[in-house]
Design a protein around this nucleic acid. Structure first.
Lengths: 293, 293
DNA sequence: GCGGCCGATCAGCCTTGTTTATCGGGCCCT
DNA sequence: AGGGCCCGATAAACAAGGCTGATCGGCCGC
């Protein structure tokens, strides 16, 4: 059975007239007669009764008409869906990001992408960078925003944001009087940090950069950044974190001080499998590239 | 888009190998290559990546594969359904019958037909003969069992049963002693009948036949046959009805007596529209013909 | 580096679809 | 009842498209 013949039949069944149906199909009448005959032979069924006043459908013809219309519609829709998948306006995208000071910009680009691509099923999760990369390699993710500069086999990544780290300390701390601080200023001070496992990439980069001579004196280890800030506010110690997050979280009573020179910086990269053919990913990547740094 | 190409693509997508797919399709490999290329051009989409190790599907190819398989299955099923409609094993049949002594045989043939045709939606109603015929002509019914010998325009009918009428009377009635009765025996006796409107064809045939000289003396008019029989049992009068029904309904205390000669007979006909193309009807008609008279 | 496997390409054939011209049969209108 | 007309079927010629066999080019594995 061929869709062309079904199409011919549907048009004929609607017009109940070979001549007019042929005209609508832009073919000559004998061709239509012949194709309908072929269809009847294929199905071994008489589809219509040829009367002198046009034609009437047999019960089998009615059944075919009822079935053929949705079939043709389904075929059309399939074609369009395939085309949509090919140009990335239809499909699925699984994104993850590791929390960072760039959260706002990340969720923002995802929001804009979703708004423009209602036929794309976008699923978003968060997790540590290493977890994201592993999932990416295993095919469990399509794209991820991760910390640092990525050099993993099979993964292509580009830096999309760069965050500066800053010191946060209680407003009444002696160092709060200074405008800018140096790494040496922090030496020996009690420090509040988060558990290394809660964000290993950032943790190690920062600790190695700010306390190059050895690990800091840990006054407290708080389970998340909100509580780190609260702990600083209570005077437990000072802390260091990325500027974006510091600005977002700092309550009154806590002040932010920049590093005087060579502020610690860390990158946020957009990563995906190299040569991933998913057109949705390509579209999303272009959104990420266009997003403000 | 043509189903043949879709079929080719599905087979190819499953084998991921042009040569083997072509073999399964019983065509040569270049033809398959060409048809897939045509499909890609039609959709303006690249469906698969040709690697040296067979081929891999692009996302669009996967989308097409997922959509094409149900589409092909639907096309196949449509073909079979049409064929089934054509030979009457699928479709709809609306039957009605007017109650008569042949009820059992009618419901029996319907039951057997239903059992053998689970894909036919058989709807059954009952109604008076005239109502059945009207509905038949209007297209609201496909077949009907009606009383009498039918000569209606556009309707074809054949007698499928012939019922004899008999007298029923209380067991202690003087005439109950006799084995057979004549029409003269009934003359002047109080009679129990049903309202004329509840069964006009039978009513008029019987009254005209049994009381040719004039209407009988109506002792009671009961709303249905069950109550006619009950009324006879109470001694209200005698009655006349078809033998089948009499046998089915008569309780102890009521006896059935045949007419001595020329017992009144009336036919039950099977009627349907002349030249109704519905193949289900043709099948049903053959069941009716094969049913025991 | 060479053989082998795989898909693309090419040229020719043959099936299939389409066209123009014509025929046959009802219907309607005189 | 006959003639014109409308409709679909048929015939023959043509065009298009699918299929085949032979061949080419590229990549992999030995």
């Amino acid at each position: 059975m061929e869709l062309r013949r079904l199409k011919y039949f549907v048009v004929l069944a609607r017009h109940r007239h070979f001549g007019r149906a042929a005209a609508e199909l832009s073919i000559a009448q004998p061709g239509l007669s012949q194709q309908i005959k072929v269809l009847e032979q294929e199905l071994k069924v008489s589809l219509l009764d040829r009367g002198p006043q046009g034609v009437t459908l047999t019960p089998a013809g009615r059944a075919l008409l009822e079935g053929a219309e949705p079939l043709l519609a389904a075929a059309d829709e399939l074609g369009e869906r395939v085309r949509a998948v090919a140009d990335g306006t239809h499909g699925r995208l699984r994104v993850a990001y590791s929390r960072s000071g760039a959260d706002d910009r990340i969720t923002d680009v995802i929001r804009r992408f979703r708004k423009d691509h209602e036929d794309v099923q976008v699923s978003v999760t968060t997790g540590m960078s290493s977890w994201c990369l592993r999932l990416l390699q295993d095919g469990g993710l399509d794209a991820a925003f991760v910390r640092g500069i990525i050099r993993e086999p099979g993964i292509t990544a580009a830096v999309v944001a760069e965050e500066e780290a800053a010191v946060i300390l209680p407003a009444d701390h002696p160092l709060a009087a200074r405008d800018r601080l140096t790494r040496r200023d922090l030496r020996g001070l009690p420090v509040v940090l988060w558990p290394r496992e809660a964000g290993p990439t950032l943790y190690e980069e920062l600790v190695a950069d700010v306390w190059p001579d050895g690990p800091p004196q840990l006054a407290a280890e708080e389970p998340d950044f909100e509580q780190v800030v609260a702990s600083v506010a209570e005077g437990t110690g000072v802390s260091v974190m990325d500027l974006g997050r510091a600005r977002k979280l700092c309550p009154p009573g806590v002040v932010i001080r920049h590093f005087a020179e060579h502020p610690p910086r860390y990158a946020v990269s957009f990563a995906h499998r190299t040569n991933d053919p998913n057109p949705v990913l390509a579209r999303f990547a272009s959104y990420v590239r266009q997003a403000p740094r």
